[in-house]
Amino acid sequence: MNKTLNPKAWYFVIPVFALVAFNAVVPLMTVVNYSFQETFGSNVFQWEGTRWFKEILHSERFHASLGRQFIFTFIILLIQLPLGIAIALTMPKKGWGVPVCLILMSMPLLIPWNVVGAMWNIFALPDIGFLGNSLNSIGFDYNFTQQSGDAWFTTILMDVWHWTSLVVLLSYAGLNSIQPAYYQAAEIDGASRWDIFRYIELPKMKKVLTLAILLRFMDSFMIYTEPFVLTGGGPGNATNFLSLDLVKMALGQFDLGPAAAMSLIYFLIVLLMCWVFYSLMMKDEGRT
């Protein structure tokens, strides 16, 4: 759509700008402020320059949790995107099946995150949980509180359970926006099912999939509450993701300086990744 130049449009944006700035600028400046100082409590601060940043960037602990975070995000994107698209493709297009599917599939999205964690905890417990008990009774040695592989498996399964529906809903929206004429044309041309998917459905879903990837990337990169309740980062440090580590540092050990520096580095990484995604996808959109 060609937009007209209108400087007065700024007035429309002011409420949003004010509300977000109110929430974003002051706390962000506080974090920046902490990141350059050392505190010994009771509001005594000492200038430390870039010491915390250097320390964090060289700390093994940070590298380890960052690595875990990337692996986790990569795995869940790899599972949730194809799975979500597959479910959206096979979902009923009309009739009573539509509301039933939509309502049931949206359920996990509307459960508070700590309840999700608690629910999966009791679901996966090796003695009284359905998942844990079933796996053990068919011969797997499963115990997510003690074996790090099992903890990873449970955390990933929980995230797939929790968030795949978002991809489904968005893909379904994209699929529904395709006009029947495209399918008719494809039929006349004798296109295979794969061709229809590759050359009609996938390009038409691009915008919603962009949104899905961005949302899933951001949220999985910031995941905190669910693993905190499910595993608490354990066993050991096996599922100690970035957010968990950060909160442990900031509130557990009260190392405000290093925690603030880590927050900023963390935020910058998310920002950079999203900017790359965003501009890649917007560039594509501009060309077609």
């Binding site: 929430n23 950060l246 900031a250 963390y266």
Partner: peptide, 17 residues
């Protein structure tokens, strides 16, 4: 884009401030 960056801010970062 600036608006979107706030969607990306980890709540863990902002909790204390």
């Amino acid at each position: 884009f600036w608006l979107l960056t706030n969607r990306m801010a980890p709540p863990a970062v902002f909790a204390l401030p």
